[in-house]
Each structure stands twice: as C-alpha cells, then as structure tokens.
Amino acid sequence: MTAPDYGRAFALWRQGAAAPWQAYTRHAFVEGLKDGTLPRESFLHYLVQDYVFLVHFSRAWALAVTKSRTLDEMKAAAATVNALVNHEMQLHVTTCAEAGIPEDALFTATERPENLAYTRYVLDAGHSGDLADLLAALAPCVLGYGEIGTRLAAERAPDTPYGDWIETYGGAEYQDLCRDTGAMIDAALARRIGPEFAAAPRWPELQAQFTRATVLEVGFWDMGMTP
C-alpha cells in the first residue's frame, strides 16, 4: 500500500527511518487490531497508558504554540491540541468507561517506563530546541497513526472488535488533520532550515530525532502487548 501524502518532510523522514518505521506501523499490536486477535486486556492496558501519553502529548503541542513564529503555525498547533483533548482522548474515555474504567482513573494512572521515556523525550526536544526539533519528535505519532489508520481501514477484518479505533484514525477528520499537520511541518521547516530539507546542515539531527521517536513508538506497542 502506498504511503499517504502527508508532505515532503514526512516522506523523507519516513524513508530515513525505514526499518523502525516498518516495525512501528506493522507491529503485532497493530496487526491484532486489524484482524481482531489482540486480547481485550492488552487493548485496555494500552488505552489507559495512551490516555496518559496524550495528556503529555497535548502539552507538547501546546508548547508548539509558544515556539511558533507565525499565526498560521500557532493555529495549526492549537488545532492539534483541540483534536487531541476534545476528540482523540474521548475515544479512550468512552471505551474504558464501557469496561468499567472511569476517566479519573485514566488521568491518575501510573505511567509505564516506556510511556515516561517517550513523552519526556518529546517534551525535552521542544524545550531544548526550536519548533523544527519539536515537530521532528512529534511527527511519528500523529502521522504514523494516520498511516496505520488508512491501511487498517482498507484491510480490517469485518468482525474486528476494534473498528472504532480504526475508524478514528482512518476517518476523514483525522486524515485531514494529518495532511494539515504535514503541510504545517513543511512550511515550518522551510522557514527555519530552507526549502531543500535534505541538504540543510540540520537535517541529520532532525532525522535522528524522528527516528528516535519512531523507535520509542515501537516500545510503546511492545508495552501494550504486556499488561
């Protein structure tokens, strides 16, 4: 399946992180969502941890507002915060509530080390660098879930119990967010490192940040497999 078009920077980063990207987007956890074989216990464990992850991820996107140089950058970052806090996290709340897990238990859940490592890595990239550094660390999650959702929407088993998850990330609203995010990344990088991304002196560093975040995504799926 052809990768979705989420912009030039994403295409280059994805290519530069080919092996971990494959491990991330084709992980056994992902395939279990697709065919319905993922144990429910593992899915609920993942949702609880992912809710905590999204709390910190939302803070990282809020940090992107303060790192922005233009109103368009601010609007794009703020729109992502809104999507995370008011839409994506609601999927977790609804699904967990049906399993008897209230929202206050999600917010106060103890972070697993894999979760802690990933979220703090992203926040550190933003605090210690500029918007380009932060976006390189943020991109694997936002755009990776978009790619996974697109593929699973086309390949899913009709009876998978994880249809709501697949529809959330494979649906038009999330796909629009990914395309908008990809365009924002391209514009932000062009503004900071020039239009020829791969030729810029900073590119290897940004690629390394994207790749590291992708590896941490693989670790997050591994965590989800072991409640």
Results as ranks from 00 to 15, higher is better:
residue 3 A to L: 12
residue 4 P to K: 01
residue 11 A to F: 00
residue 11 A to S: 12
residue 16 G to Q: 04
residue 17 A to K: 00
residue 17 A to R: 00
residue 18 A to D: 14
residue 18 A to E: 15
residue 21 W to H: 05
residue 29 F to C: 05
residue 30 V to S: 07
residue 31 E to S: 13
residue 32 G to K: 07
residue 33 L to M: 14
residue 37 T to F: 08
residue 37 T to C: 08
residue 42 S to G: 09
residue 45 H to R: 02
residue 45 H to Q: 04
residue 45 H to S: 14
residue 47 L to S: 09
residue 48 V to N: 01
residue 49 Q to W: 05
residue 50 D to E: 15
residue 52 V to H: 02
residue 56 H to I: 04
residue 57 F to T: 01
residue 58 S to R: 00
residue 58 S to L: 10
residue 65 V to M: 11
residue 65 V to T: 11
residue 65 V to H: 04
residue 66 T to M: 09
residue 74 M to W: 05
residue 77 A to N: 07
residue 78 A to P: 01
residue 80 T to Y: 07
residue 88 E to A: 07
residue 94 T to D: 15
residue 95 T to H: 05
residue 96 C to H: 06
residue 97 A to T: 13
residue 99 A to S: 13
residue 99 A to M: 10
residue 99 A to F: 10
residue 101 I to S: 04
residue 101 I to T: 12
residue 102 P to R: 10
residue 109 A to L: 09
residue 110 T to Q: 13
residue 112 R to I: 00
residue 116 L to S: 10
residue 116 L to F: 14
residue 118 Y to N: 11
residue 118 Y to Q: 14
residue 119 T to V: 15
residue 121 Y to W: 14
residue 124 D to W: 11
residue 128 S to C: 10
residue 128 S to K: 15
residue 129 G to I: 08
residue 130 D to G: 15
residue 132 A to S: 15
residue 133 D to R: 05
residue 135 L to F: 13
residue 142 V to I: 15
residue 146 G to Y: 01
residue 150 T to I: 00
residue 152 L to H: 02
residue 153 A to F: 04
residue 155 E to N: 09
residue 156 R to L: 10
residue 159 D to Y: 04
residue 160 T to M: 09
residue 160 T to C: 06
residue 160 T to I: 08
residue 162 Y to P: 01
residue 162 Y to W: 13
residue 163 G to N: 06
residue 168 T to D: 04
residue 170 G to A: 11
residue 170 G to M: 05
residue 170 G to E: 03
residue 171 G to D: 12
residue 173 E to G: 11
residue 173 E to S: 14
residue 177 L to C: 09
residue 181 T to K: 04
residue 182 G to Q: 05
residue 193 I to E: 08
residue 194 G to K: 07
residue 197 F to I: 08
residue 198 A to M: 07
residue 198 A to W: 08
residue 200 A to E: 03
residue 202 R to G: 04
residue 203 W to I: 05
residue 211 T to D: 12
residue 213 A to V: 05
residue 213 A to C: 08
residue 216 L to A: 11
residue 217 E to K: 03
residue 218 V to G: 07
residue 224 G to T: 05
residue 226 T to R: 14
residue 226 T to Y: 02
